[in-house]
């Protein structure tokens, strides 16, 4: 009894750690993505992952996390590649191309995942958990793997933060001064794809992009510096991920993804209203103060 309890709590702790690391890294990577105004790229990558999960299962017959996530990553990259090709060769606009990739790849993914049992792949049960996220099935080994991926992603961002910030702020100047702008863009989008895939088990394909987008947007309210924003965004991602996972553990059958997104949305709402300077309340106060000082200026006159 005590041994079993100890085992469970070890697993729970490790899974929580892994999810926390993924949340942090997603927020960190997401900052670069949002600053470069590529927030929807993550969405395209995320929705493409289901096809990869299904194909990896079909190709190998295995359903361990590593196999499925490798498939998901490949599919995410293919989805992003389609995005690039669509824009370059069909002159489809950015938003339309993104919507196209999201819709088509997701339709394909859902068809595959939901059709597998009907086609005789009885042991495919569980793949649909990648739709909305389910951490209950995660093992300690899975969690360590996710934590390792998250650490690598954070390390890469730390290494190229200067270059990525330059490209995000002023790509023309970056190109004119000799920086490989598209190379740096590919690196950032590749990191986003990586974090989308790492967030898949906890948050699921439909909502994982929120873990990449909401934390940086919330963090932006509190600071005017990129470095601070990146760290803060990571912390918000961490809190949201852990809170969501903890909440979903309170009732069996509760999907994790929606709860993670709700937790992130709460942080966003607090930031939107309460942040100094950029928050809604502060801006209202500033505006009315400006009005007041105008009035008092008027009264000073002769």
């Amino acid at each position: 009894m005590t041994a079993a309890a100890g085992l469970v709590s070890y697993n729970t702790v490790v899974v929580a750690l892994g999810v926390a690391a993924v949340g942090f890294a997603a927020g960190v990577v997401g900052s670069l993505c949002v600053l470069r105004k590529r927030a929807l790229a993550g969405d395209a990558a995320a929705h493409a992952t289901l096809v990869g999960v299904a194909c990896a299962f079909l190709a190998t017959g295995r359903r361990d996390l590593v196999t499925l996530l490798v498939g998901a990553f490949v599919a995410a990259c293919v989805g992003l590649g389609m995005l690039v090709l669509l824009r370059r060769f069909t002159r489809t606009r950015d938003d339309a191309a993104t919507a196209l990739v999201i819709g088509v790849s997701f339709g394909l993914g859902i068809t595959l995942v939901s059709g597998l049992p009907a086609w005789g792949y009885a042991n495919s049960a569980g793949l649909e958990q990648f739709l909305l996220g389910h951490t209950a099935a995660l093992t300690a080994r899975d969690a360590w793997l996710l934590a390792a991926v998250a650490t690598v992603a954070v390390a890469v961002v730390a290494a190229i933060l200067k270059e990525a910030t330059l490209v995000a702020f002023d790509s023309a100047f970056a190109a004119a001064t000799g920086w490989p702008v598209s190379g740096i863009d590919y690196a950032v989008v590749g990191l986003v794809a990586l974090m989308v895939v790492a967030g898949l088990p906890a948050v699921g394909a439909v909502l994982v992009t929120a873990l990449v987008v909401i934390p940086p947007v919330a963090a932006r309210f509190w600071t005017d510096r990129v470095g601070t924003m990146v760290v803060l965004s990571g912390l918000i991602g961490l809190v949201a991920a852990v809170a969501g996972v903890a909440a979903s553990a309170t009732r069996p059958g509760l999907a994790t993804g929606p709860l993670v997104v709700i937790a992130a949305a709460v942080v966003f709402a607090v930031s939107f209203f309460c942040a100094p300077h950029r928050g809604w309340i502060a801006r209202r106060a500033e505006a009315s103060q400006g009005m007041a000082s105008q009035w008092s200026d008027g009264e000073v006159g002769p």
Binding site: E163, L166, W179, R225, M229
Partner: peptide, 16 residues
């Protein structure tokens, strides 16, 4: 509206 200050932007001139 990018989250950088004046000094940050001028420093970008030294990145090359």
């Amino acid at each position: 509206d990018f989250p950088v200050n004046v000094m940050d932007v001028v420093l970008m001139g030294t990145y090359g």
